[in-house]
């Protein structure tokens, strides 16, 4: 059993905690023993004053945290840019990230997720290609390709799309069949994406159009 530290910058850390607890309970229920002991959270220096949880103790800022053996990390930051930044910082300290999946995820038993994912998606098909450090939170992934560091949030539907690296897809979006979303793009909430989105672009609306800066 390893000590689990949740990396977060807001209360999504608690959502990650809930997924970790669910996964651990699933293992215990199936006589495979406890996976983790959730010991607390670490956060960026600039949010530490305002981030306080009743059920998850603060351990340290990410910048100051000392990684030790028998410790694993769960990435609870959803903004792709900041996610990648803090992953790299912790990797320099030899942090090991764990992939968490919610017990109700419908995915093929043979599916192997890459490092550091948070998988709480409603369905993932066997032809899905999921990168590292992908967050899928109550979304529909189906047979999509999802690039590393991307985050697909609640009720978003990307079932046959090609999502690049570092993309943020906000709640309730739909990305239509075979659409390609370029890396580091942002899809605003409730958008319906019907055409390819270039890299580094923000889109919003039905149909989604580029957002003026």
């Amino acid at each position: 059993m390893k000590d689990l530290v949740i990396v977060c910058e807001d209360s999504f850390g608690l959502d990650v905690k809930m997924i970790a607890e669910g996964m651990d309970a699933y293992y215990v229920k199936n006589n495979r023993g406890h996976l983790f002991d959730i010991i607390g959270f670490i956060c960026p220096e600039n949010v530490k004053e305002k981030l306080q949880f009743k059920t998850l103790p603060f351990l340290s800022t990410i910048e100051d945290y000392q990684v030790s053996d028998n410790m694993v990390f769960a990435m609870g930051i959803v903004d792709p840019g900041r996610k990648e930044k803090y992953i790299r910082l912790l990797k320099e300290k030899n942090a090991e990230f764990v992939t968490l999946w919610a017990p109700w995820v419908l995915a093929p038993l043979t599916m192997k997720f890459k490092e550091g994912c948070i998988i709480a998606a409603h369905s993932i098909k066997e032809n899905a290609e999921i990168g590292e450090f992908v967050t899928m939170f109550h979304s529909m992934a189906g047979g999509a390709k999802v690039g590393s560091f991307s985050s697909i949030m609640s009720y978003a539907n990307v079932t046959t799309a090609d999502i690049g690296e570092g993309v943020y897809i906000a709640p309730n979006c739909a990305v239509m069949e075979n659409v390609v979303v370029g890396e580091k793009s942002v899809i605003f909430p409730n958008s319906v994406v019907v055409k390819n989105v270039k890299a580094n672009t923000k889109v919003s609306g039905i149909p989604a159009r580029k957002v003026k800066d």
Partner: peptide, 10 residues
């Protein structure tokens, strides 16, 4: 709360 998603801390 009717078929909704309420994130932690709300």
């Amino acid at each position: 709360i009717n078929g909704s998603m309420i994130y932690s801390g709300a």
